[in-house]
Design a protein around this nucleic acid. Structure first.
Lengths: 189, 189
DNA sequence: GGAAAAAGTTGCTCTATGTCAACGTTTTGA
DNA sequence: TCAAAACGTTGACATAGAGCAACTTTTTCC
């Protein structure tokens, strides 16, 4: 098993080496070009992705063509459209690689099979969902509770690497503001 | 076991009657007055609540004293501040009963004990987290993706009972707008 | 049942942020 | 390596929605 995924499991569970190696074949390595799409709106999501290097962005495009970025999965994180994966409905969001990335892919069926039958994966999945719950609770209060400048400062403090690695356009779409407003805010920080 | 909670389990799991009855003692019935608080900001959340009748509101208060409502748990739903329950950190949100309500309470320790040791509860918890994931994904895109009128129409369509049972003030705080704006929007629907 | 409090409505004004356009800078890919 | 495209910045202007105040209606609870 790839060492990054192995650490991920070992940090969250007490799984033994043998079982860990048994899980390995379910994950296939895949290299993704910068800006390549792993999922488009309207498609049913069929894979869960674990990022080994690079990063994936989850975003949607609204009626006016504006992008909203919901989540960035950096290396060492799972990232996929769980909503589509869980419901089987067409996705309302896109998954795009923002950098040349290497990911491990596991199919939806394999993933949920392991969730049901392998306690370590059940635990991992629970942890993913719990983390998502915590992050999005904060995000909802943050989106509604502060103005653009407040949100920018919050993000600078919480996730500084976002500013090193992502374009202003993506950051703006993550903050829910236009790139123009972001540019002005940064000029006055 | 209370029939509403029993149905909840039976809809989501294949648990047998005997095990179901064994779970019953973990849940204690509690009556809550209208507007009573079950949790305040800064307190560590110690219970999970299952609503039998009435409804609970999860909300936070920002620096300017404005309320943001994140979730309403109506009858037949679990509702608590999972973030505080999971992390053990003080809650950033309040839990308040919006109507005279009857809830079943289960302690945090009992709940997570059952999540680990009773497959049916593990499944229930997974379902709660998955539902929350799906709801909040939509909510984030909704908050960022449309204007106030769009959000109002969306809510009217998705959750009409909210309009029958909750005050405009609460609805406004759920939509992330002021009561004034909501009042004006409704006048022009 | 009635006084007091809370909630809802509406006019006026103000402000943060969006929109659009122009222009400089950086990145991309043939 | 160089042209084209994408990205970032900034000014001028437009606008959705906030803030506040006055008033009406509804709810609360002695």
């Amino acid at each position: 098993m790839h060492p990054i995924l192995k650490s991920y499991f070992q940090d969250l569970t007490q799984i033994d080496e043998e079982k860990l190696e048994a899980l390995s074949p379910y994950f296939k390595e895949k290299t993704v070009k910068k800006n390549e799409f792993l999922l488009r709106e309207g498609e049913v999501c069929r894979f869960n992705y674990f990022v080994l290097s690079g990063c994936l962005r989850l975003f949607s495009v609204n009626n006016e063509g504006l992008e909203n970025t919901r989540y960035i999965a950096f290396e060492g994180k799972f990232g996929t459209s769980f909503t589509s994966l869980i419901t089987g409905d067409p996705s309302i969001e896109y998954i795009q690689s923002l950098e040349k990335s290497v990911v491990l892919t596991i199919t939806k069926d394999d993933f949920f099979y392991l969730v049901e039958n392998e306690p370590a994966v059940n635990k991992i999945y629970r942890n993913i969902l719990e983390s998502a719950y915590i992050t999005t609770q904060k995000r909802i209060y943050d989106l509604q509770g502060s103005d653009s400048l407040g949100r920018l400062k919050w993000l600078l403090k919480q996730q500084p690497r976002i500013f090193n690695r992502l374009s202003n356009k993506v950051i703006a779409s993550y903050l829910g503001i236009t790139q123009y407003t972001l540019s002005r805010l940064k000029a006055n920080l």
